[in-house]
Simulated assay, not measured.
Amino acid sequence: MIREYERKIFQKYFLERDSLIAEIVIIGDEVLLGIVREENASYIIEELTKRGFIVRRVVIIGDNLDEIGAVIKDAFKRGAQLVITTGGLGPTEDDLTLDAVSKAFNIPLEVDQKCVERIKSFYGENVPKSAFQMARRLKGAKIYPSPLGLAPAQLIIMDKEKFLLILPGPPREVRTLLPRILDEIAKIIGRKVKCSIRFYVNAREAEITDILAEVIKKFGVYAKALVSLCQGGKLPIELVCFGENMEKCEEKLSIVKKYFCEKVRKIFNRKCLDEEF
Results as ranks from 00 to 15, higher is better:
residue 110 E to H: 02
residue 64 N to P: 00
residue 118 R to W: 07
residue 96 L to P: 01
residue 139 K to F: 08
residue 158 M to K: 13
residue 247 E to F: 12
residue 47 E to A: 07
residue 1 M to T: 09
residue 206 A to S: 15
residue 49 T to W: 00
residue 128 P to L: 10
residue 269 N to R: 13
residue 275 E to M: 06
residue 24 I to K: 00
residue 186 A to R: 00
residue 171 P to Y: 05
residue 94 D to H: 11
residue 200 Y to S: 05
residue 168 P to C: 12
residue 136 R to A: 02
residue 244 E to N: 14
residue 73 K to M: 03
residue 182 L to T: 14
residue 216 I to H: 00
residue 149 G to T: 05
residue 116 V to Q: 12
residue 70 A to E: 15
residue 264 V to S: 03
residue 204 R to Q: 12
residue 98 L to K: 15
residue 120 K to E: 15
residue 260 F to Q: 07
residue 110 E to R: 06
residue 33 L to F: 11
residue 235 L to Y: 09
residue 125 E to Q: 12
residue 94 D to F: 11
residue 142 K to T: 02
residue 242 F to E: 12
residue 196 S to W: 03
residue 70 A to Y: 10
residue 267 I to R: 08
residue 18 D to H: 14
residue 39 E to N: 12
residue 183 D to L: 11
residue 270 R to Y: 04
residue 172 R to T: 02
residue 25 V to N: 00
residue 38 E to A: 02
residue 193 V to W: 13
residue 28 G to C: 06
residue 229 L to S: 11
residue 194 K to T: 03
residue 131 A to M: 09
residue 85 T to N: 03
residue 43 Y to G: 06
residue 206 A to I: 15
residue 228 S to P: 04
residue 55 V to I: 10
residue 275 E to I: 06
residue 263 K to F: 07
residue 158 M to Y: 05
residue 176 T to A: 14
residue 116 V to P: 08
residue 140 G to Y: 06
residue 80 A to N: 11
residue 71 V to E: 14
residue 255 I to L: 08
residue 204 R to H: 13
residue 245 N to L: 07
residue 100 A to D: 02
residue 6 E to F: 09
residue 184 E to C: 00
residue 268 F to N: 02
residue 228 S to A: 14
residue 21 I to Q: 15
residue 123 Y to W: 15
residue 13 Y to L: 07
residue 236 P to L: 10
residue 275 E to W: 12
residue 41 A to R: 01
residue 25 V to E: 00
residue 195 C to S: 13
residue 175 R to T: 06
residue 122 F to H: 15
residue 139 K to H: 10
residue 133 Q to E: 13
residue 214 E to I: 04
residue 37 R to Q: 13
residue 204 R to W: 07
residue 149 G to H: 05
residue 198 R to E: 13
residue 127 V to T: 14
residue 130 S to W: 09
residue 159 D to K: 11
residue 38 E to F: 02
residue 192 K to S: 08
residue 107 I to E: 03
residue 115 C to I: 08
residue 230 C to P: 04
residue 217 K to A: 14
residue 97 T to P: 03
residue 239 L to G: 02
residue 220 G to M: 05
residue 56 R to V: 15
residue 102 S to P: 13
residue 100 A to H: 02
residue 192 K to E: 09
residue 169 G to T: 00
residue 257 K to Q: 12
residue 272 C to P: 09
residue 267 I to Q: 06
residue 204 R to K: 14
residue 55 V to K: 07
residue 78 R to H: 11
residue 209 T to A: 15
residue 114 K to T: 15
residue 155 L to Q: 05
residue 19 S to A: 13
residue 75 A to L: 08
residue 24 I to Q: 01
residue 274 D to K: 08
residue 267 I to D: 03
residue 221 V to H: 03
residue 108 P to H: 09
residue 76 F to N: 01
residue 222 Y to W: 07
residue 117 E to N: 12
residue 153 A to G: 10
residue 31 V to T: 08
residue 23 E to R: 05
residue 110 E to D: 10
